[in-house]
Structure formats: structure tokens, C-alpha cells
């Protein structure tokens, strides 16, 4: 099954991407759509924008590797991952993950799996612009923990539960 992986500077239209994924398909019974959006404040302090830096070539390859792993774990009928880079203003979308399957469990699980790995393994770095200064966002331990739960016994239980 093919997948769409795209990196782009410009915003995306989640509804149009969902329509493109499901057009002409009658086998798909569930689509989960996750959109990550730039917040206007971090820890109570307003921000002007985020700037996302990425490693061209590796970012696409790393996302594709995790899409392949998701496809091997769950019976997916379609996957779309779009990740933006460059300057992103509060309220604008940053990332889109679409997963399609016959039944909802696979689509929910795969979307969460892909987002957990995008957070911790895809080579993107967020810089915050606030009060005229810039600073790099620090990685969160909670994101590492979220990704780790997909390996080992907990992941097998979750996978079995989805089947």
C-alpha cells in the first residue's frame, strides 16, 4: 500500500488531504486525522512564531521508515504525513497525520504511533520567537516516554487489543 509523505513550507488543507486519501475508495471504514497546531503561548508567555529547521533528505527518510513500520504493525489502507518547515505563526498547522483502515482501532493506534515517533525521531527542531528573541525548544521526557511505550510488552498488548 502506498503512502504520501511530504515536507513543505506552505500550510496544508487537512480536509482536502483526507478527501484525496479516500476518493474512490469503498474499502476504507475509518480515517483518523491528527493536526498539530502552533500555539500562541508557551508556559503562559505569548510567542510570535515558531521556526522549524529540518534535515532535508533524512526527515523524509525517517518519516518513511516509521510509516513502513506502522504499515507492518496495523492493517492500514492509506497513510498521509505532511510536516511543515520554516516560519509558522500561532494558529497555523504544523503537521498532519492521516491513517485509514477498515475499522477504527488500527487507524487510531497507527496515528498515535506515527505522532509519537515524529516527535522524537524525525529530524526537526523548533525555535521559538518571543519578545524579540529566539530560543530552541527543549525535548520533553514525556515525548520519549510516549515513543518508548511502542516497544516491548506494552506495545504487543496494545497491538493485540487492536486486532
Amino acid at each position: 500500500m502506498g503512502a504520501t509523505v511530504r515536507l513543505q513550507r506552505e500550510p496544508f488543507d487537512a480536509a482536502a488531504e483526507t478527501a484525496a486519501l479516500t476518493r474512490g475508495r469503498t474499502d476504507i471504514g475509518a480515517v483518523v486525522a491528527f493536526t498539530g497546531i502552533c500555539r500562541g503561548a508557551e508556559d503562559g508567555a505569548p510567542i510570535a512564531a515558531l521556526t522549524l529547521e529540518h534535515y532535508p533528505g533524512m526527515a523524509e527518510a525517517e518519516i518513511a521508515r516509521h510509516v513502513e513500520e506502522a504499515q507492518s504493525r496495523w492493517a492500514l489502507l492509506g497513510v498521509t504525513v505532511i510536516h511543515r518547515y520554516g516560519r509558522i505563526a500561532p494558529g497555523e498547522p504544523i503537521v498532519l497525520v492521516l491513517t485509514a483502515s477498515s475499522h477504527r482501532h488500527e487507524a487510531f493506534a497507527a496515528a498515535e504511533f506515527l505522532m509519537d515517533f515524529l516527535k522524537t525521531r524525525a529530524p526537526f527542531w523548533k525555535q521559538v520567537e518571543a519578545a524579540g528573541a529566539t530560543s530552541w525548544v527543549e525535548a520533553k521526557q514525556s515525548d520519549d516516554s510516549a515513543a518508548e511505550r511502542w516497544s516491548g510488552a506494552a506495545a504487543r498488548r496494545r497491538r493485540d487489543a487492536a486486532e
Binding site: 498539530g36 522549524l52 529540518h54 534535515y55 533524512m58 526527515a59 510536516h83 504544523i94 503537521v95 505522532m115 515524529l118 516527535k119 522524537t120 525521531r121 524525525a122 529530524p123 526537526f124 527542531w125 523548533k126 530552541w136 525548544v137 527543549e138 525535548a139 515525548d143
Partner: peptide
Amino acid sequence: IAFFPPMTGG
């Protein structure tokens, strides 16, 4: 070979 901080995408 690339070097970088822990990633913060998504």
C-alpha cells in the same frame, strides 16, 4: 555524518 540536539518536531 550529522550532529544535532534531541529532536522537537511534530
